[in-house]
């Protein structure tokens, strides 16, 4: 019997090819394929039922999908900008502290140490309309005498989710911007002082341009994070009540696993991924541009 002889380069690459296929390629191809079928988890043989672009047509004409899409973009925009502004303020203040700065920097990281699920539960409790801290505090202070439905009212629920999101992730911006502040050379700042800048002008014209690459790195990382937001929302509101806080991935998760319509969920997933890719590409472009302006990189 003649043994099969593979070329050496293929033998050497085979482990990597096998692992990548198992972990990335096969799931990717399978999920892409299933988005063109009427695959339901409850009827496994439906995976062979080819329906063409039906799932995609359904998704792009589905108001619920676009509502979730819009809400996700809203969350991204509001949360990222708030986190950036608060993180910037935090970093600027911490950088001015002369004693105990190490301790403060460590404390800044605390929110990042908690699982988003736990943060979700924590804020679910804080914003609970009966036993929650916020309503209790408001009522004790006499600001209101009724129970505000923080997690039930559509706008307030979105606000509460954004609040939790900002609480968890402001420190990501804070830490990265702080690193940026440490990296700014002293000379241009002194030159700006001599050139007649007030503190605000020094910040606006010298400090901020130096910080922009760091801000964009944080934005790129966080945009991926927020675009796939699931856990906090799932725990705090479960996308409800009545889908008022439904985001893309809570909708997709529900469709795939609760309604068992995996083919349709995969189709929505593929559309949603473009959102994440769009934001990442956008921020990386900005990053490259701001680095180029500073004469860094190519």
């Amino acid at each position: 019997m003649k043994r099969l002889k593979l070329p050496p380069w293929l033998v050497l690459l085979l482990p990597a090819i096998l692992i990548l296929s198992a972990v990335v390629l096969i799931p990717l191809v399978l999920s892409l394929y299933s988005s063109f079928t009427s695959y339901r988890l409850t009827r496994p043989d439906s995976i062979f039922n080819w329906v063409g672009l039906f799932n995609y047509e359904k998704a792009v004409t589905d108001a619920k999908f676009w509502a979730a899409f819009g809400r996700t973009v809203l969350l991204l925009t509001v949360a990222l900008n708030l986190e950036m502004l608060l993180g910037l303020g935090l970093a600027l203040m911490v950088s001015k502290v002369t004693h105990g700065q190490r301790l403060l920097r460590t404390m800044m990281m605390f929110p990042m140490m908690f699982s988003p699920i736990l943060v979700g539960f924590q804020f679910k409790f804080i914003f609970n309309d009966n036993v929650g801290l916020v309503n209790n505090a408001l009522q004790s202070l006499g600001i209101t005498d009724r129970a505000i439905p923080w997690l039930v009212d559509a706008d307030l629920a979105m606000f509460s989710i954004i609040f939790a999101e900002v609480w968890t992730a402001t420190s990501v911006f804070g830490i990265l911007i702080l690193a940026g502040l440490y990296a700014i050379p002293r000379d241009p700042l002194e030159a700006a002082k001599v050139d007649g800048c007030t503190s605000w002008q020094s910040f606006r014209y010298v400090t901020l341009p130096f910080l922009m690459p760091f801000i964009y790195i944080a934005m790129a990382i966080r945009s991926l994070d927020v675009a796939r937001a699931y856990d906090i929302v799932q725990v705090m509101t479960n996308g409800g009540p009545a889908r008022r806080t439904e985001l893309l991935w809570t909708l997709i998760g529900r469709t795939g696993y609760v309604d068992a319509r995996m083919g349709y969920a995969n189709a929505m997933g593929y559309i949603s991924i473009f959102l994440a890719i769009f934001f990442t590409v956008y921020f990386f472009k900005k990053l490259t541009k701001s680095r180029k302006e500073l004469g860094m990189g190519a």
Partner: peptide, 10 residues
């Protein structure tokens, strides 16, 4: 005028 020029790179 500074030793390291201290120009605004951007």
């Amino acid at each position: 005028v500074f030793q390291n020029y201290a120009l605004y790179p951007h």
